[in-house]
Design a protein around this nucleic acid. Sequence first.
DNA 1: GCCAACGTTGGC
DNA 2: GCCAACGTTGGC
Length: 155
Amino acid sequence: MRYWLLKSEPDTFGIADLAKAKASTTSWEGVRNFQARNMLRDEIKAGDLAFFYHSSCPEPGIAGIVEVVRGGYPDASAWRRGSPYLDAKSPQNKPLWYTVDVRLQQRIEPLLSLAALRSHADGALADMLLLRRGNRLSVTPVSAAQWRFILSLMR
DNA sequence: GCCAACGTTGGC
DNA sequence: GCCAACGTTGGC
């Protein structure tokens, strides 16, 4: 089993929305980047754990922990009428984009801020993709060591 | 709102 | 296959 970090803009879908969702579960729809798509489709499996990260907001950071309850499957938002994620290049019979289902395991309150993570950028989190300059990927792998270290920051 | 970084597109 | 133009991301 593996660990991940999933970014979302809280204005669009934040940890509070996940907490309110049916069975605290949501489909991680709308990823439209090929590198991230490949991870959703091929690598992320049921049973994996992920940090739920808030981006593009006043206080970016890790807002919760989610469990993957369904691995990669076609993202229906690409062909759903009226969807903001509509993509004509991804018809139902030839899906281009993929999603996974995640269930809220634990909210992190207060949120573990990006600044707090960054303060370890020269140490335990030196290789963390999130902290890399120019990183924009909305799905990134997290190593077991990074995962454990970040959990220790939450206590 | 600014701007650096990076992905995608499309002409050649 | 190259690369300029353009769009998007996301912290600040």
